[in-house]
Structures are given as C-alpha cells and as structure tokens.
Write a protein that binds this DNA or RNA. Sequence first.
RNA 1: GGUCCCAUCGUCCAGUGGCCUAGGACACAGCCCUUUCAAGGCUGCGACACGGGUUCAAAUCCCGUUGGGACCGCCA
Length: 438
Amino acid sequence: MNKTVRVRFAPSPTGALHVGGAHTALFNWLWARHNGGKFILRIEDTDRERSTQEYEDTIMAGMRWLGLDWDEGPVKGGDYGPYRQSERLDLYHKFAEQLVEEGKAYREGTAIIFKTPSGVPLAFDDVVYGRIEVMSDTLKDTVLIKSDGMPTYNYAVVIDDHCMGITHVIRGEDHISNTPKQLMIFDALGWEYPVFGHLPMILGKDKKKLSKRHGATSVYEFRDMGYMPDSVFNFLALLGWSAGDDKEVFSREEAVSLFELSRVIRRAAVFDMDKLDHINQEHLKLLDPMVRLELVEPFWREMGLPVDDHGREYLAQSLTCLEGRGKTAREAAAYSDYFVSFKPVKERYDGSDVDEEQKATLRRFNGELLNLTDWKAAAMEEFARSWSAENSVKMRDIAMPLRMALTGMKVSPGVFEVAGQLGREEAARRLRHFGFLD
RNA sequence: GGUCCCAUCGUCCAGUGGCCUAGGACACAGCCCUUUCAAGGCUGCGACACGGGUUCAAAUCCCGUUGGGACCGCCA
C-alpha cells in the first residue's frame, strides 16, 4: 500500500514566522494530519551569517501559537534527525564526495559544484500546477558545498528530503523554478523524486509579495492585535484552498478532514484583513465564555484595568453581553472596559450634556427603576417602555443618558443588559455620580 | 534578458464543455429590526483581461496578445 505520508516545513531561522511561512507550514500540517502522516520541522540554518537561535525559537513559538505541532524536529526529536542542517554536515559532504568521484561534480577551491548535464529533460508532475518540464540546458552549474563547508539550499533540500523519507514536498510557488535543479541532483544520486506540490504566493493589498510594509507580517503581530489562533488558521487555510462548498468558517478538525492538496488553487492570493476580521469575529462568537475571557483578559490588563477585582464568572458574563461586538479580542476589551471599572467611564463622560430639567426626569425614572424587584434586563426594559409611554418620554431620551452614565460610551450593548450585568448597586453608584439618581 | 508560473466581482473562493442571463463570502450601499452600535434578515452594486480557433455548445480545451508574478546567489 501507500507509505505513510511524511511532509516537512523547512524554515530558515533568519526571521520570525511570517504569513507566507505560516501558510506553507499550515498546508503541510493539514496534509500530514489529513493522512494520518508525519509533520516534520527541519531548520535550514546553513546561512551562518543570518541564522540565529532566537529566530529558531520564535518560529517554533509561532507554530505552537497557531497549533501546528510537529511530530519530528527540534525539541521533539525523531528517528531521522538531527533536524538542524548545521548538524547534518557529514551527510552533505558524503554525497558531495560521491558525486565528485563519479565525475558529476567538481571542486573549485573548497567548494563543490554540480556539473549540469546537457540535453536532459527535467520534468515533474506537480500536484497543484500539473506537469512542469524544463531542459537542463537552461540551468547553470550549481554550487553544492559552499567554501565555508556549508551546503547550499538546493543541495541540502535534496539530501534531507530523501534521507528523511519525505513523501510530499509542499512549499511556496517561488520554489517552482528551483525544482528542476533539485531534480538533477535526485537523478545524479539515483534517488526517486518525492511528490511535489507548490502553493500559490500570498500578496499584499498592492498585489506585491507580502512584506513588512503591509502591516502584520509575523504571526505574533496577529496575536498582539487580538486575533485568535483558530481564526488566523482558518483564514490562512482559505488562501489558495477551499473544500468546494460554501463553508468558510471552520474548525481545525473540519479543515483536517476536508483538506485536499489537489484542491489547492494556482492563482496568487491577496491577504485581506477585512476578511480576517470577519472570520475572527465569527470564531469569537463561537467561543466558550471562559476561553473568551482568557483571550480578552491580557488586553484589559494592558489597559490597566483592575481585572482581579472581579470574579471569573462575572468577567466572562460581561463579555457574553457583548454578543459579537468587536472583531478582535483587543476590540472586545476596549468595548467592555466599563464592566471592569467605573474609572474609564468617568474619564469619557462628565454628564454636562444633560440639563437640569432632563436630570429631574432621569431622577424620577431611575428612582423607580432602581426599585424594581426584578433586576433583570427584560423586566427593566418592560418597565422602561411603560414608563416612557405614560410620561410621554421617548425611550432614547432615558436610555441614552443611562448608557452614557453606565458605560461612558454612546455605543454599547442593550443598556438594560449592561445595567443587569453591572448589578443594582454599581448601576446606582454610577447614576448618582452624574446626578441622574437621588 | 533567459526559463517557468498565473489570469472569474475591489478581495477570498465556487465553477473542470451544456445545470452560468456565472454562485457564495468579505467589503460597500440601501431597507427591516431597534434605546445606540453590533449581530441577524432582505435587496442592491459588482467579474469570466483581449483576440483568434476547436465544438452543435466554452468561464471551462488549443494558440496568440496583453498584464502580473517567481526564479536565474558559495540566501533560503
């Protein structure tokens, strides 16, 4: 039968995990999980100048944040290690020597260079791009081992993919032109090709390759902006792939079962923040209240709010009150600060927009409201409706001042929901502060 | 410049010769709901780059043009 699927994500530790890399890692992970195969993390640190341990750590942390766990790789270990190219030098040298002995490569100083054969067609069937064929004559000789003893990318990839038993090479489309070079090396060593599947590029709003200029480029920036891993995962999965139906908001598990490499699209995709916002909001709505609280809490703390003054249930319930308001955890935190503290309310509002006559009306209404036996939103609303009708006052004329006094904002969830959640005492305290209650 | 890749609404996807006067989602506009804003519901705007073929029939196949992109490093 088919052998176990083994795929790898092979970043070079010369920067943080950016959107493009995360996308590639994600598709590899999806393919491994879909097939019950192995997802391998391999660090391609052959650039001595730019590779650092710090970057390696950030990349791994970024993957963990996205939930892309690897079965073999640094930290985790595995039977095909080491998983850092700088630790596999003997392997690269061994095969390079072999190539030299067979006359397929030659030395130039301490470097070893592969001699490109002429007149050889190099072809492979890409799972997403179809058959791609190039004549070897269009290729130059390529360096295998650099003067510093390190292997080059195009060489090390071949050795490692073969030696690690990689069955599917899934990577960015920018590697399509590199593939024929690697094919020559596979051929020279008499090795079978893995299956290749190239992924479309991800572009910025200006349709140029995504870079720092396009805002968020490292996955951490998404975390800091208040996006949750599940939605970034969901969003990234939708770039270049779809299950074929209209379902766009899905869980990891659903993506795993639906994913098909053959359904990957060829056209480059533009990274659209608006869509990410929407997907994040959808995921936020689906969240368990306590989990949502964990997501929002750091942002409240960042704003200096006394989170610890309240019980977990109260805080979680406060967020539930928001009912989908806010596209990110950061926004949700900003939209709900008044549940955590009265301070920001006072900073935003001073009650000076209400004249004495209006205040008198508010005092009458609020006085009765505070005496309601049932401190529930529905009961308060019902009371407010009949009271406003009897007193010929518009609902908004009592609801808006109430909202301003309780939240300090002109925008909030239903004001009686807010009052209910704050509790009778806290509501009274705030109303009194503004002279809206005796 | 050489080689390779791509081309459906502003954006992400559906579409693999007839079901397409091209479908969904985001964004945008309007309406409904309504104590505000969201959410939700409804409606609207909006695309097969162009030109040739092939075929009874093409968004779907072929060729060309144009436009994008990638690679061409002792970077990965």
